[in-house]
């Protein structure tokens, strides 16, 4: 059944649709509108340093929040009985079947100045209380069109990608390993710190990867929840391809730099724990 030639169609496919496009990005990044080699795109990018900063900052915050929420949740999930586990997994997967743009759009209804959450707060008299205590005069919390809302959108959309790999890894830890640690006199804090946590690291690493990469490159979430105020890398790239400032050369350069930074981050992180690709899949 061994047959090397079966791989050939897909190798040709990859050459055309994976390798050539990557070379196109590199090629365009180093050319100008007039043609000819240039590093001008990269020096032009300096004016967008703020966009790079914002993108990475918001993505890092979103990833950390996902980790802080996701790790305990996945750990607790593994301690439930098989029935609850099964239901919890279904509950986690179900939202992914609804279009993410739509779910993000629904957050707009919740977060708007006259939105559902602000109406709810005002109905329970929260603003009256705050105004009475602090002497201020507010009738809503400004939530939509802030950076906080963008982070919330990222956390909301990508939290399952953090929970699932961590859950899978912890759930597969051999119960006998934990019992052995207990027999050898470790208390529960020590069992967690010395056994469960180190064994769960591959899951944590794939979780971080699966949250960070889409967060740093998103363009729809920042448009919907950030109201176009917060320009992120994804928006910057999208603008170069669809929009008034059509400039695939700059777009390619931004894509290339983003790709390189992400790859370097991943490489550094993979050194910390032997990140296993298998942990990604459910």
């Amino acid at each position: 059944m061994k047959n090397k030639f079966l791989g050939i169609p897909y190798i040709i496919w990859m050459a055309i649709f994976v390798v050539v496009p990557m070379f196109l990005i590199v090629g365009y990044a180093f050319t100008t509108r007039e043609g000819g080699f240039s590093t001008g795109n990269f020096s032009n990018m300096l004016s967008y340093a703020g966009v790079f900063g914002d993108s990475f900052l918001l993505a890092i915050i979103a990833t950390l929040v996902c980790l802080l929420i996701g790790y305990p949740i996945s750990y607790w999930m593994t301690r439930e009985g098989p029935g609850v586990k099964r239901i919890a997994l279904v509950v986690l997967m179900l939202p992914m079947w609804m279009n993410f743009l739509l779910r993000t759009y629904a957050w707009m209804s919740l977060l708007e100045n006259t939105g559902i959450l602000n109406e709810l707060f005002s109905a329970i008299g929260l603003f009256k209380l705050i105004n009475a205590v602090t002497g201020s005069n507010i009738d809503h919390f400004p939530m939509i069109n802030t950076k906080g809302a963008v982070v919330l959108g990222m956390v909301y959309n990508y939290l399952p990608f953090m929970i699932l790999p961590i859950y899978n890894v912890i759930d597969k830890i051999d119960a006998r390993v934990i019992e052995a640690a207990q027999d050898l006199g470790a208390n529960s804090a020590n069992v967690f710190r010395r056994v469960i946590f180190p064994l769960s690291l591959p899951g944590v690493i794939s979780g971080i990867t699966m949250v960070f990469i889409p967060s740093v490159s998103t363009f729809a979430i920042s448009k919907l929840l950030g109201g176009g105020k917060t320009l992120l890398l994804g928006d910057l790239i999208e603008m170069q391809f669809y929009g008034n400032s059509y400039n695939p050369y700059l777009g390619s350069a931004v894509s290339l730099v983003m790709m390189v930074i992400v790859l370097v981050c991943m490489a550094i992180m993979n050194r910390f724990g032997d990140g296993e690709e298998t942990a990604v899949m459910l």
């Binding site: 649709f17 990005i25 889409p214 740093v216 894509s255």
Partner: peptide
Amino acid sequence: ADIITGVSL
């Protein structure tokens, strides 16, 4: 990132 795959294609 999806956007890079999309843009390059």
